[in-house]
């Protein structure tokens, strides 16, 4: 009984940590531009697929991973420079549609370059499961959790302790005022896309040994991450992390206790519930502004 529950919890938290990283990517771009970047899932795909391809070409694992992260970050920067930036001044809905177009284009390119097969990435430190109170825990799950936690802490430090991080927040709170203190808001937007690309790639590399990777894997991972971001409150970092964990755990519990058929539906039922009950999300911005 307990072992079964623990088993579901482990897989839920592992998935949830991945969703949290994807949701953070959504949050960073949303804060900088109020755009929901539906190409976020494709960054995840690029991370996994590029690592597989580079390993296949003979690169050592750490180098392949680093290069894949840089590639996804570059994809983010290019997306901003050549698709979002030229449409500056367009409505947010137009920009969102542009990101959907970009996601389709990225999938197409990935299919051409890397093919349609599923690929597995070897686990970072073996496949011998650990036994915890009757449940099994894959070493790769520990990697997912550890690296995700480290990334979250690093991001928190960046946004709360560094001047550049605060400048990015300032630009999201008040664009005009940010320009008036000398913050280049165009550069902030550019940087946000690059950062989100890198974050997505990290998520994609971490889960690739568990879920396999494929040129279309970004669709579902992107949507689940989006669900997590909405659940936590769009644009809220803590919300993205908590939202990711809730979606992941709910999915694993639903798959375990109800039916794995409904696995993917659970995230979307959660979004609907949140939008009905609390549209600003669990940690959505409440107005503390006095005017």
């Amino acid at each position: 009984m307990l072992s079964e529950f623990l088993q579901f919890l482990f897989s839920g938290v592992t998935l949830g940590a991945t969703y949290a990283l994807v949701a953070l990517g959504f949050a960073i771009i949303f804060n900088a531009s109020h755009v929901i970047n539906f190409a976020q899932g494709e960054f995840v795909m690029i991370g996994g697929m590029a690592t597989v391809a580079l390993l296949g070409a003979g690169a050592p694992m750490p180098l392949a991973m680093l290069a894949a992260i840089l590639l996804a970050a570059t994809a983010g920067l290019l997306l901003e420079k050549f698709a979002v930036e030229p449409a500056r001044g367009a409505s947010v809905v137009t920009l969102i549609i542009i990101t959907i177009g970009a996601s389709i284009a990225l999938r197409g390119v990935a299919q051409l370059v890397w093919g349609k097969q599923f690929h597995a990435l070897p686990s970072f430190s073996g496949d011998v499961p650990l036994q915890v109170l009757g449940a099994t825990l894959l070493p790769q799950s520990l990697w997912v959790l550890g690296v995700s936690a480290a990334v979250v802490v690093a991001l928190f430090g960046f946004f709360n302790r560094t001047l550049l991080g605060k400048a990015i927040l300032a630009a999201s709170y008040n664009r005009d005022a940010a320009q008036l203190v000398g913050i280049n808001v165009k550069f902030v937007l550019f940087l946000s896309f690059g950062l989100s690309g890198a974050l997505g790639a990290v998520a994609g590399i971490l889960v690739a040994p568990i879920t396999f990777t494929h040129f279309e894997i970004g669709i579902m991972l992107g949507l689940k991450g989006f669900a997590a971001a909405i659940l936590g409150g769009l644009g809220n970092g803590l919300g993205a992390v908590v939202g990711g964990l809730i979606v992941g755990i709910a999915e694993a519990m639903g798959a375990g206790y109800i039916s794995s058929e409904y696995k993917d539906a659970i995230a979307f039922v959660l979004i609907l519930l949140v939008l009905f009950v609390r549209p600003s999300g669990l940690f959505g911005r409440r107005g503390t502004e006095r005017v």
Partner: peptide
């Protein structure tokens, strides 16, 4: 046009961003 959620000191620090 404050950076509302940021602390007063952060607003001042950002004033000197350049």
């Amino acid at each position: 046009q404050m950076f509302g959620p940021l602390a007063v000191e952060d607003n001042l620090r950002l004033g000197a961003y350049a």
